[in-house]
């Protein structure tokens, strides 16, 4: 556990020493701010509903860039020979790195709290959907980052990791349209696997336990896969 903390600290420092965290944060916040203003001006309603939905879509593009470095760079620079031969489990390494990405994401989300603050100051928004929406936004983003972390474990090339991550996330987005294409239980099942579809409920103010469980297991599956990929590399060389 303390090793996870060490990895986490180093990774967070690395995010905030390099321009990466700032550039991605700026892009994310600029686009979110644009959607917030435009939607607010158009609807004149004190609600975050459309804004959070759009933020989620933006984050599909942000997450792979934020995570592509995590494991790929270690392998590229040979620093994986340090952490993989230190008395640290691969689970601790992956967890520490993933949590650092989640922390960075939380910083971004914290800044976006300005939007509901503005709504509260000048209007009287229904707080329920905002709370649940932010919980959903957090879970959704954490899911995207898990996919990105997994992609980063696959290669030593950051660009490739980023593209794989982006492709996977797009796939889990468009799965949500499956019920419109394929009718019946097959379509419903596929649509239920979509990252964004689950998020809709949270936006509307519904905290569905199955939704929370979906995101949590989604995260664990991808982190588990990342651990397996890294572990298996010891055999392939």
């Amino acid at each position: 556990m303390s090793k996870t903390w060490s990895i986490f600290k180093r990774e967070v420092a690395s995010y905030f020493i390099s321009p990466m965290a700032y550039v991605m944060g700026a892009v994310f916040l600029m686009l979110s701010g644009y959607f917030f203003s435009v939607i607010l001006l158009a609807t004149h309603s004190a609600s975050m509903q459309g804004v959070l939905g759009n933020m989620a879509v933006i984050f599909i593009f942000i997450a792979p860039v934020l995570t592509m470095r995590l494991l790929a760079e270690e392998r590229k620079l040979g620093t994986d020979e340090l952490i993989m031969t230190a008395p640290v489990s691969i689970t601790s390494i992956v967890a520490g790195k993933y949590l650092a990405a989640v922390f960075t994401y939380l910083v971004y989300l914290a800044v976006t709290l300005i939007y509901p603050a503005i709504l509260i100051k000048y209007g009287s928004p229904d707080m329920g959907p905002i709370y649940s929406g932010y919980l959903g936004m957090f879970l959704f983003g954490a899911g995207c980052l898990a996919v990105g972390t997994f992609s980063s474990s696959l290669t030593d090339n950051q660009m490739v990791a980023g593209i794989i991550g982006f492709g996977l996330l797009l796939f889990f987005w468009i799965l949500g349209w499956a019920d419109a294409i394929v009718t019946g239980p097959v379509g419903d099942t596929l649509a239920n696997l979509s990252l964004l579809k689950r998020f809709d409920d949270f936006q509307k103010g519904i905290i569905d336990l199955s939704g929370v469980l979906y995101y949590v297991s989604f995260i664990f599956i991808f982190l588990f896969l990342a651990v397996r990929v890294i572990d298996s590399r010891r055999w392939s060389g």
Binding site: R10, S14, L77, G78, T79, D80, E81, L82, A86, P87
Partner: peptide, 17 residues
């Protein structure tokens, strides 16, 4: 691993630190 100190061929350094 606790008993071993290892210097790989390319020193495993994080350059920004």
């Amino acid at each position: 691993r606790r008993k071993i100190g290892y210097l790989p061929e390319n020193p495993p350094l994080y350059r920004e630190m």
